[in-house]
């Protein structure tokens, strides 16, 4: 049994604006994420999924309940050193690739995190090179970030996080501003980090086809956990997801519509190949 890395118990967070009006972004959610697991967090805008990400990295602190990340309990009275320790364990990649690169040269930017950690120079050199190779940006190391494409910039940002060697990386809608090609590049990198390096991944997204790649999906709706299960389990309930404003992968949708009009299938697959196989089998049988 894998160790739990993130444990949320009855976790809540309330935003209060300047007028004193408060909004509950998270209303008592409970879940665990095991070390080495790849979890996608799905939800439409304003569902509370980004708030969840910010809590994991102590950008925000919980208003209620208990949140443990890598053995550290997150609360509002943490010392600077404790916050530092959490952030060393949990890296974060944000939405806008332009707004998270600090330096004017790619490799200097990747070195920014390790520099902050006080890593000795020889080791830092190794880490920076390895991280850039992992994301496939090594040949661009001497380039300037503004000359790169969105997907490339985002991969540099990921390299900057990898070089800090965190146990877990949170992707906060990191593919939302990218073109399809950039998204594919980033998704491939995320998968490699999970499979080859055993890194715990929490991927916050509203793209269904990205969520499918995860081991598990948490669906967040209106500050609550609406579904928690494997992609297949979660996407089986097409009507339920539609009720909370979410779509399902296209293959799954097609199968669902067909079965509503009377063509039944034994399985509820989510990947395109599997869907095609079933359709072909059905077609041959009906003929």
């Amino acid at each position: 049994m894998a160790e739990p890395f993130i444990i949320a118990e009855n976790l809540s967070y309330t935003y209060t604006d300047e007028d004193g009006d408060s909004t509950d972004a998270l209303k008592g959610v409970s879940f665990t994420v095991n070390a080495g697991e790849y979890v996608a967090v799905l939800g439409h805008n304003g569902s509370g999924k980004s708030t969840l990400a910010k809590l994991l990295n102590v950008i925000l602190t919980p208003s209620g309940g208990k949140l443990t990340v890598g053995g550290h309990v997150i609360h509002s009275e943490m010392s600077e050193d404790e916050v530092f320790d959490v952030r060393r364990d949990v890296g974060m990649v944000f939405q806008n690739p332009d707004n998270q690169l600090v330096a004017t040269i790619v490799e200097e930017d990747v070195a920014f995190g390790p520099e902050n950690l006080g890593i000795p120079r020889e080791e830092m050199r190794m880490r920076v090179d390895d991280a850039l190779k992992t994301v496939g940006m090594y040949e661009h190391r001497a380039n300037q970030p503004h000359r790169l494409s969105g997907g490339q910039k985002q991969r540099v940002a990921i390299a900057g996080v990898i070089a800090m060697m965190p146990k877990c990386i949170v992707f906060d809608e990191s593919t939302a501003m990218l073109d399809p090609r950039g998204r594919a590049e980033v998704m491939q990198t995320i998968r490699r980090l999970n499979q080859d390096f055993g890194m715990t991944i929490l991927h916050i997204t509203h793209y269904m086809d990205e969520a499918v790649m995860a081991d598990r999906i948490l669906v967040v709706n209106d500050g609550e956990i609406y579904r928690d299960g494997t992609p297949k389990e979660v996407f089986a309930d097409v009507e339920g997801l539609r009720r909370v404003g979410l779509d399902v992968p296209q293959g799954r949708e097609l199968m669902h519509e067909l079965s509503r009009s009377g063509i039944r299938f034994d399985d509820k697959p989510i990947d395109i190949e599997h869907c095609a196989e079933l359709l072909l089998a059905k077609y041959n049988a009906l003929k």
Partner: peptide
């Protein structure tokens, strides 16, 4: 907006000023 985002991103990468920092070059 960018400045705000960047500040959060820098904090997340454990930036806390010049103290205890090493340099790549």
């Amino acid at each position: 907006k960018r400045a705000d985002d960047l500040a959060v991103a820098m904090e997340c990468r454990c930036y806390r000023g010049g103290e205890g920092r090493t340099k790549l070059k």
